[in-house]
Design a protein around this nucleic acid. Structure first.
Lengths: 208, 208
DNA sequence: AATCTTGTGTGACGGTTGTCACGGTTAGAA
DNA sequence: TTCTAACCGTGACAACCGTCACACAAGATT
């Protein structure tokens, strides 16, 4: 487990006693690249704080579709795990580690103590919820008001923020994330290439 | 202002001292039917608890489109107002009173005291956020995975839950809520009428 | 080198939805 | 009553997107 000081570097909004407490009760768990960290319908046994790595959060449709919503990375926490854990509710989303990801696991039996005794925990939870909520609103903007080409553009920008200008993605992966089809994405990407927004390679997109 | 006991009837999860405190510091405000209670971009001056009436929450698109997300009614609170108020952030959604709506306004300067001193307030905030979050997920399901006819069906069910089988809605209002067009909604409604799911009248839909 | 697997490019087609045009109907105002 | 504004019905058409079919290319495997 990390020391209180190390935790504070990852989560600067924690106060000292909170970090010390968490350090004393939590475990660290590592998820390999590609692991499903949380399935839809699964129950939380712990609240998760992400130390390093990257996680993709999906909403699953009834017929096995997936729809990408947002990323989590170091310093973030899974909003749902913090509240659903307390109320013993099932997860409504799927989380996949897309890099090796290190996570601090706080067993749910400590949630109540954390909430009531540590003010900075409580603010952290609120802020986490607020920012995820905001991200969901942007997701809604995209699918409610925008066409595929604009959504694709937004998607590529998101990826660029996290990974830079060289994206190791296949057209099929993008199509899945946007709940579209490979052909549509291929066509739109080709159009964007013609407009010099990017260069296409096999398994790889180079943003201009 | 309401007495502590009255507040407790509307918000049974509050504990006695919390209700007493709120009763001593908050104001009641009434919004007429049709009033915009909160505009996108406006800053919160108070956190709002809804006593009675019904409120519709919209997301606004760049080009003036609206998109209906969910209802609030008596016993609910505006999730955004509770957290954005604390952090002095602008609202990201629009709220419209669709009936005369009575609201308890808690000035933001009390947010911190409420959070730290009253445990039941803090749980109430979390639960409010959690349930709004969940509703947003359902919204995403609808627009990401479903066609207009299924979305319309879901929309009518939502309305039925709040208003019963007689809905005073024009096709244009529905189209606006779903960010579609009047003609499309008219066609789909007509089809549903043929399948005996409902009966159409002017300004009024009768669900079977 | 031959084969296989996976990823990409592209035309054709159809379904859904948005838009335009226009006519009819209802309720209320003049 | 007559007029007007709002609401509703419907056909025609186009844009967007999902699907099918198939060809080709780049690596990996044998």
């Amino acid at each position: 487990m990390y020391t209180a000081d190390e935790l504070l570097r990852f989560f600067p909004s924690f106060d000292k006693e909170l970090a010390t407490f968490i350090s004393s009760i939590a475990d660290v768990k590592t998820f390999e690249e590609g692991t499903i960290m949380m399935k839809t319908g699964q129950y939380f046994k712990a609240s998760m704080l992400i130390i390093s790595g990257k996680v993709k959060l999906y909403r699953e449709g009834e017929d096995g579709n997936e729809f990408f919503m947002y990323f989590l990375e170091g310093g973030n926490a899974c909003a749902l795990s913090m509240i659903c854990a307390t109320r013993n509710q099932a997860s409504q989303i799927m989380a996949v580690a897309i890099e090796e990801t290190e996570v601090v696991m706080i067993p749910i039996r400590f949630m109540d103590v954390l909430m009531t005794k540590y003010k900075s925990w409580y603010y952290f939870v609120l802020e986490t919820y607020r920012s995820r909520f905001e991200e969901l609103l942007f997701v809604i903007d995209n699918i409610a008001f925008k066409n595929m080409d604009e959504r694709l553009e937004f998607y590529l920008k998101q990826q660029e923020d996290k990974f830079g200008k060289h994206l190791n993605l296949t057209h099929q992966q993008i199509a899945t994330d946007l709940n579209s089809s490979r052909e549509v994405i291929s066509r739109l990407l080709k159009k964007m290439e013609k407009h010099n927004f990017l260069v296409l390679h096999r398994n790889h997109i180079e943003l201009a």
